[in-house]
């Protein structure tokens, strides 16, 4: 399937996968992440049950200290 991840086209060898699986696949191991799927905020406790499908738009934002 093909998704848009952080504004880049990404082709993944699967029909669908969960947010958790995508984060593992992309090695996003940062402890504080904000995930948006098609514009909707996905909270951490929903990462394993939220499914990403073909054509979906995913944004993963790293929370970084400093200010």
């Amino acid at each position: 399937m093909t998704i848009t991840l952080n504004n880049r086209t990404e082709t993944i060898d699967a029909d669908k996968l969960s947010v958790s699986e995508l984060l593992n696949y992309k090695n996003f191991t940062f402890k504080l992440l904000l995930v948006k799927l098609n514009g909707n905020l996905i909270k951490k406790d929903k990462f394993s049950e939220t499914i990403i499908n073909d054509d979906d738009k995913v944004d993963v934002i790293h929370m970084i200290s400093g200010g």
Partner: peptide
């Protein structure tokens, strides 16, 4: 305009 990542989140 926070400092800590947890607070930003």
């Amino acid at each position: 305009a926070f400092d800590k990542a947890e607070e930003k989140q």
